[in-house]
Amino acid sequence: MIVVTAPTGHIGTHLLDRLLAHREPVRVIARDPARLPAPVRDRVEVVQGSHRDTDVVDRAFAGADAVFWLMPAEPAASSIYQTYVGDSIPAAEAIVARQVPRVVVVSALGRGTQLYAGHASASWAMDDLLRSTGAHVRALANPTFMDNVARQVVSLADHGALTGTLPGDQKAPTVATADIAATAATLLADHTWTGQDTVNLLGPEDLSLNDQAAILTEVLGTPVRYERTDRRAYKQDLLGYGMSEAIAQGLIDMDTAKEHGLDTAVSRMPENTTPTTFRQWATDVVKPAVDARSDR
């Protein structure tokens, strides 16, 4: 039995498709099971509730051979460490109590850089908590998700602008969430690996935001430029969306750490290079979304 948390997110959706193709028995923890596509819902066991809840996690982990652990930040959390580490304590306790042998956890690049990196730093502490259970653990260490660009469909379609707070010429890796899911699925379906380790996922190329804008220009067939925004203004926007001071500042701290090399400390090698290019991802994901908005 494989247990999947956050099954309706970008990674979880891709992951379920792959696991079900392997015909693995799957159990999911879902706040709202109705958000699962009907064909998926009919083929998985659902434990309804939050994976921050002790009773929910304990029930879900019973008889589990492997757990996929993804902890999204709670937007209103009062502490960046509470939302990753504190909220993962029920999982650690259930892993021990239910003797779960293997855990695959979504994490971040940059461990060992001695940079404080907000959300990334808290995710490393979460990894350490899960490792402390004695289970076999693989932490999937990721750079910025390509999929974050999809949040800017309106800006791309209406204004031809890709925005961010990093220098436009700074090159760094990015990764597609589908590739994270593919790696997770392989690990979850394999009942032979042992020990505790980090699996870096770098994507196939380092690109700057100026590079991304140039690729989007070619893919969309309309000019796209990169516009660098002020971090203080960005933080105010985050607070305006309802984020707490701690969660908003955690994003700013992570962004600042990325400017200082958080995502570039690991060398790209065949074993940590995922296949999806930014161009292919933009063609498959961004272009249809922009075209649909343009046709409105």
Rank of each mutant, 00 (worst) to 15 (best):
I2Q: 02
V4A: 07
T5C: 07
T5Q: 08
I11N: 02
G12H: 06
H14C: 00
L16M: 03
D17H: 06
H22N: 12
H22L: 15
R27D: 00
I29P: 03
I29F: 01
A34H: 07
R35A: 11
R35W: 07
L36C: 08
A38S: 08
P39I: 02
V46S: 12
V46D: 12
Q48A: 13
H51G: 09
H51D: 09
D53E: 05
V57W: 02
V57P: 04
V57D: 00
R59H: 06
A60F: 05
A60S: 00
A62T: 05
G63H: 03
A64S: 01
A66N: 13
A66K: 07
A66E: 08
F68P: 05
W69Q: 13
E74P: 08
A77Q: 09
S78F: 11
S79V: 02
Y81T: 05
T83C: 09
Y84S: 02
S88K: 06
S88G: 02
I89R: 12
I89Y: 01
E93K: 13
R98E: 00
P101W: 01
V104G: 01
V105N: 14
L109C: 03
G110C: 07
G118V: 03
G118F: 06
H119A: 13
S121T: 12
S121F: 09
A122R: 05
M126A: 11
M126K: 12
L130H: 00
R131M: 15
T133E: 06
V137G: 02
R138L: 04
A139N: 09
A141R: 15
F145D: 02
M146I: 05
D147A: 06
V149Q: 00
R151E: 15
R151C: 09
L156C: 02
L156N: 05
A157K: 02
L162T: 12
G164M: 07
G164D: 02
L166M: 15
P167K: 06
G168W: 13
D169R: 13
T174Q: 13
V175C: 11
A176T: 02
T177I: 03
D179T: 01
A182C: 03
T183S: 11
T183A: 13
L188I: 03
T192E: 14
D197Y: 00
V199I: 09
L207P: 04
Q212W: 00
A213V: 01
A214K: 06
I215R: 03
I215P: 03
T217V: 10
E218A: 14
L220G: 07
G221F: 10
T222L: 12
T222D: 12
R225G: 04
E227W: 00
R228W: 12
A233W: 11
Y234K: 14
K235V: 14
K235D: 12
Q236A: 13
G240L: 09
G240M: 07
M243H: 05
S244D: 04
D253N: 08
A257E: 04
A257I: 06
E259G: 11
H260Q: 14
G261L: 04
G261N: 01
L262F: 03
L262S: 07
D263A: 11
A265F: 10
A265H: 14
P270T: 04
T277E: 08
F278T: 09
A282N: 10
A289R: 15
A289H: 08
V290E: 11
V290N: 09
V290R: 11
V290W: 10
D291G: 11
R293T: 03
S294P: 06
S294D: 14
S294T: 15
R296D: 11
